[in-house]
Amino acid sequence: MRQILLVLASMLTLSSLNSPTVTIAGTTPDLQEMRLVQRVNCNNPQTQIAINECAKLSYQRADKKLNQAYQQLLPTLETSRKQKLIAAQLAWLKFRDTNCEFERSRYEGGSIASSIYSSCLENTTKLHTQELQEFLKSDP
């Protein structure tokens, strides 16, 4: 048993030489963090794990664009409209997240639930980004 553990430890050590890792002082990685992650081909994901990861990455890109549009719009508004935009954005975020949780609940417990949730977040976020971009075009 000890030899097996030594072999596994050696394999993990050797495999970690090829990929950068970040260690935070005072924490111990859980099994999820210890899994080796390879770059996923999002043009042709082959597993549900890859599909889930690609959906998550796609949502993150959409969220970044939303934040850029929001940050561009905010300084163009007078104070009272800024406050209304901030309140609307907070309400929208709550709606988006709750709505996507509802959509995901149809697949609760299934491996596809994660990608359903991320895809919902992405689609809803893209629509809202377009709305904010329209405000940027139309507001003086």
Rank of each mutant, 00 (worst) to 15 (best):
G109V: 12
E103T: 11
F95R: 06
I112L: 07
T98L: 11
R104P: 07
T125K: 05
S114H: 11
L93E: 11
S105T: 09
K94L: 00
L127C: 01
S111R: 13
Y107P: 03
L121Y: 01
I116G: 02
C120V: 07
N123I: 05
G109H: 07
N123S: 15
L132T: 08
F102R: 06
S114C: 05
E101Y: 02
R104M: 04
Q130E: 09
E103C: 00
I112T: 06
I112E: 12
G109R: 09
E122T: 15
T125H: 01
C100L: 09
Q130M: 14
F95L: 08
G110H: 07
N99C: 12
T129R: 08
R96I: 03
L93P: 03
K126M: 04
E103L: 02
T125E: 04
F102T: 07
F95N: 09
C100F: 00
N123M: 05
H128T: 10
R96D: 13
S118R: 00
S115V: 07
E103K: 03
S115F: 11
E101F: 04
S114W: 10
T125G: 09
S105V: 09
E108Y: 13
L132C: 14
L93H: 04
K126G: 02
S118I: 03
T124P: 11
I116T: 09
C120R: 07
T98Y: 06
A113S: 09
G109I: 10
S105P: 06
F102L: 10
S118K: 02
T124V: 03
F102H: 04
N123E: 09
L121N: 00
R104D: 04
A113G: 11
R104L: 08
G110D: 15
L127N: 12
Y107T: 00
R104K: 14
Y117H: 08
L93V: 12
K94N: 01
L127F: 15
T98R: 13
L121G: 00
S114E: 13
H128D: 05
D97C: 11
R96W: 12
F95P: 08
N99V: 02
R96H: 01
E122I: 08
I112W: 06
G110Y: 14
G110N: 10
L132I: 14
D97Y: 05
S119W: 01
Q130P: 01
F95A: 04
L93M: 10
E108W: 11
C120Y: 04
L93F: 04
S119C: 15
S105H: 15
G109M: 08
L121I: 07
Y117D: 06
R106T: 05
F95E: 05
C100T: 05
L127K: 04
S119M: 10
Q130D: 12
R106P: 11
T129F: 03
T124D: 11
A113E: 10
E103Y: 09
Y117C: 02
C100W: 01
R96V: 07
S115Y: 00
D97W: 06
S111A: 15
F102P: 02
Y117L: 08
Y117V: 11
